[in-house]
Nucleic acid binder design. Structure first.
Lengths: 341, 341
DNA sequence: CTGAAAGCGCTTACAG
DNA sequence: CTGAAAGCGCTTACAG
């Protein structure tokens, strides 16, 4: 009653434990009649397969670890959903941990997952993580892993991310083509490499046209909308508003828009606004938000694929992939026009 | 090199396996000197504790399952973060699965987690789930669990949720006190009990003042903002707009607001809008959104507490808890005033 | 197609 | 404080 094992099932159906084991895993080596009989017995006794015990024997757990800063930003949520979907499709259960952008927490989660013997881990590093702890804890052999989104220059692993620099250059081109000259950048967490890449691209793109980036504000990532709004307050307090504000993420951009409106500045008409990610809200919001789609679903899917490949071929050459992003032009830039100043 | 076990560590440091086992778990039965020596050996050999093996012996896995429809709504994201935090504090790793509001998927996830021998599971049921599969798969003894947010009338388990009915009554009172007479309700997924509870409360509250609920629209939960916006289009196409629109969630309310603005109707001034949840965006948005705070963080925290209690006392009496919500009055209702019609 | 035996890496009494 | 032995519930060759 209490705890039914394959031994109980074997005894009750008059076969050996090996036979039951094969039935559980749906082997074709067992006759349909026997299979049927064993199945019925399992039902009757209320047998539940103990994967833990199987794991110990097979040295695989059919689990994957996912560590990321959090899921409060819709982009992370979409990414997470995609990864879970793919993991499930591959027959794996997902262990999830949130670093909250704290490297020590990240290391702790990593260590626990390795102890739990996950088959592999997908890691979106904390913004200040430099992959040091990582290398020690996740010795190549101990846990296959792939890093996503935030590039870790000193860490040897597969990587999948977005071509942020090119995307930001495109944003700059678009803004300049509208006649925009003064561009401000409202960033995410100070140490975040994605923030830096997008700023870099913007700077490069503007330079190409003989322009400078106007100002860069930092924003606490945990309160993205509130952060965008705070940064905008600072920006407007400095006198003459810029022609355009580029936010490092749509969630931040929405905060920017709200604050502009609150101060009587019309987003789009008076100040152009651009975000990154193309979260759902970007196309629903009024005005609709010009943004760079970064396709978290694709990223998640590819991350799981890469991880599974790494698990089956631990020695294969490492691969770094960056996907192209795609600018969606909407009202927050198309409504803009040069003011007679 | 390849796979270091406690036997290797025991041999290399000249003690027995039992001693190593005790050192690993930080037992005080072992002398500091021995502990130190064994620790050093573990370091040197690159030993990694195999929790799987320990699990098999101890019959606990130090893992918890979390199954919920998804994390795309910020409310679910906050809930998830809180649960992960508490689980980690209790020394547990979280296995996460998303049902995508599909009962079959939910059952599959549940079955996998039981096989993985999670110590317990927190379940936020799919909107159409009635807990049937649940009762079969998660036999009380097999996996302790607690249901959150969405009440399952026919399922025996602990439950933790929000007092939605009372909260919605309070919303009705507030609207009526402003002079609002025609109230429309824009709901979530049709079968969702939370949607129904909030509608019920609203209806009761209005009845109290001799008013009826004007219209109820359903919204696809996967595209919450887009859904709110779609529902609003339908509502406005029907001629005379209502005095107020109550949305079943803030995410939906933001879509409502966007669509009102798009059609030249001023949210707040022309049509009052109320949401539920008090997500971050509610207080940042322009205009700020009147909403009922439902405290997902507290819910998550209590859910883990309840689950841990259930794990240690499987036979204790079941408990159903509903927390009070809290109305935050903001611009989308305070700006409203009766039109001379 | 089936059975007996060894082993995955730990923990847990039980002696010493 | 330490060691030898049994066992957690599976899987995997290897014989039959």
């Amino acid at each position: 009653m209490e705890r039914v094992t394959i031994s109980d099932v074997a005894d009750a159906s008059g076969v050996s434990r090996a036979t039951v084991s094969l039935v559980v895993r749906g082997s074709s080596k067992i006759s349909p009649q026997t299979t049927e009989r064993v199945r019925a017995t399992m039902m009757r006794l209320g047998y539940v397969y103990n994967r833990q015990a199987a794991n110990l024997r097979t040295q695989r757990t059919m689990t994957m670890g996912l560590i990321l800063p959090g899921v409060r930003d819709p982009w992370f949520a979409d990414l997470t959903m995609a990864i879970e979907e793919q993991a499930e499709a591959a027959g794996c259960t997902l262990l999830t941990g949130y670093s909250r952008d704290q490297p020590e927490r990240e290391n702790r989660l990593l260590a626990t997952m390795v102890e739990q013997r996950v088959d592999g881990v997908v890691l979106l590093p904390a913004s200040q993580s430099r992959g040091r702890g990582l290398a020690e804890i996740v010795g190549g052999r101990t846990a296959p892993h792939v890093v996503i989104d935030r590039w870790l220059p000193y860490h040897r692993s597969d990587f999948i991310g977005v071509d942020n620099v090119s995307a930001a250059v495109e944003v700059a081109d678009h803004l300049v083509s509208l006649g925009v000259r003064r561009v401000a950048y409202v960033g995410g967490p100070p140490d975040c490499v994605v923030r830096a890449e997008r700023e870099e691209g913007l700077r490069l793109g503007l330079e190409e046209h003989g322009l400078d980036l106007d100002a860069a504000s930092y924003v606490d990532v945990d309160l993205e909308q509130a952060g965008g709004s705070q940064a905008t307050r600072n920006l407007l307090a400095g006198g003459q508003p810029p022609d355009a504000i580029v936010a490092y993420a749509d969630s931040v951009a929405l905060g920017v828009i709200a604050e502009l409106q609150r101060q009587g500045v019309r987003p789009g008409q008076d100040v152009a606004v651009v975000g990154f990610d193309d979260i759902d809200a970007a196309s629903v919001h009024h005005p609709t938000l010009t943004t760079v789609a970064t396709f978290p679903g694709r990223l998640g899917e590819q991350a799981v694929k890469a991880l599974l490949a790494r698990i089956s071929h631990p020695q294969a050459a490492l691969v770094k992939t960056r996907f192209e992003a795609r600018l969606h032009i909407r009202e927050t830039t198309t409504l803009w026009s040069r003011k007679a100043a």
